[in-house]
Amino acid sequence: MTVKRLTVVLAAVVTLGVAGGAYALQHGPGNGPDQSAGRGPDPVPAAVTAAAVPRPDHVVLVMFENKKYSSINGSSSAPYFNSLAAQGAKFTKSFAITHPSQPNYIALFSGSAQGVTDDSCPRTFTGKENLGHQLIAAGLSFTGYSEAMPSDGYTGCSSGTYRRKHNSWVDFDNVPAASNLRYSKFPTDFTTLPTVSFVTPDMCNDMHDCSVGTGDTWLKAKLDAYAQWAKTHNSLLIVTFDEDSGTSVNQIFTAFVGQHVKVGSYAETINHYTVLRTIEDAYGLTPINNAASATPITDIWQ
């Protein structure tokens, strides 16, 4: 082969490689809104997958309780949930991991239910990896905010309308007490938020003991200001549920709202491990436990 012909061939190979990489970064690994349920995307290198998830300045995740997807989606009792989802990405095939509540909270935070199958308290995990520890070890920050918790750093199982079973971060000995705060400490200056925040309403406002309308009103009053701010400040709000109302389907309502979120309904199948993996990819963290085999959400970003 002549030198001239070799040069042409090499140039073509480089061009194809760059184009392919650019497509993967722009479109993600083929996990789009039209993907059929249960069909996973083709494997892609970890570096490409991570780059396909933007890095928000702040993520706030709020978890509600025990309502199936159809009880929220399109419901006249949940006008704000539906209005919020219309401002971002609504997932029409989002599922919890199991029943009852507690193992779902633990699974979303650590990529595993850690063998927990009930709501018994207390649960203590020694040296188990989790999102809070990962973030802090990477020089980032995590705080969990629990409504009605009687004091910062509280480790008791219950107090009034607070329940530890809905506070997964307190179960892990490598998450400092300083990361376990009352919801009253949630800042009004959103620039002072930690990198990632988890928010747990009390037993009424999370819909466990009260109506869908009660939770809808609470979400609008407490987090709409952050949702609107996030859309212009490189930040993200995730609204989801721990589980459905106890059915074998376990389908839940999940929505992402933020500056880099493309508005629309997305039909790929996701679960708590998917959400955890997406947050980990956003910050370049090594995915843990079942999050390692989950496909991150890459098709909703702009």
Rank of each mutant, 00 (worst) to 15 (best):
L193I: 02
P54L: 08
E147R: 06
T254Q: 10
P79R: 08
H27N: 15
P100S: 01
D152T: 04
G38D: 05
A177G: 13
N167R: 10
D118T: 09
L25F: 12
A225L: 01
V261T: 11
R55D: 10
L135Y: 05
Y154C: 07
W301H: 07
N180M: 06
N82K: 06
S36R: 15
D42H: 09
I97P: 00
E268T: 06
G144H: 14
T232A: 14
A291Q: 09
G115D: 09
V249D: 15
K231Q: 15
T217W: 04
V48K: 05
D57T: 14
S245K: 05
K67S: 06
F190H: 08
K128S: 14
A11G: 15
Q228P: 05
S101R: 01
I72Y: 01
P41I: 03
L237R: 02
A86C: 01
E147Q: 15
D206Y: 01
N290I: 00
G215I: 06
A282G: 15
H99M: 06
T124M: 07
T15M: 14
Q114F: 04
V62A: 08
A294D: 02
L61H: 08
H99F: 10
N205P: 02
N66S: 09
Y80Q: 09
T126Y: 13
S197I: 05
I72F: 00
A221W: 02
D34H: 12
T143G: 00
P103C: 04
E129C: 03
L223K: 03
L6T: 12
F64C: 05
V14Y: 09
P150S: 12
G127E: 11
T232K: 09
A11Y: 05
M63C: 04
V212Q: 06
K231S: 09
G160E: 11
V48P: 03
A267Q: 14
C210R: 04
H99R: 07
T240I: 04
T278C: 10
R5I: 12
G74H: 03
V62C: 04
D209C: 07
F198Q: 12
Y162K: 06
H58Y: 06
M1T: 11
H133P: 01
T217G: 10
G153Y: 09
A86F: 01
A177N: 13
V249N: 12
V257Y: 05
A227V: 03
D216E: 12
V62K: 04
L6A: 13
S235P: 11
M203C: 07
N180S: 13
P45R: 14
V249K: 08
Y273L: 11
L135P: 13
V13G: 03
V239K: 11
T232L: 03
L84F: 08
F64K: 08
L276M: 05
T200N: 11
N290C: 03
A19G: 14
C157I: 00
T7K: 13
T274F: 07
L135G: 12
L140I: 01
T155V: 11
A78K: 04
I252F: 02
T298A: 10
P103T: 04
G144P: 02
T195F: 02
E65A: 08
D119H: 04
F256Y: 15
D281L: 08
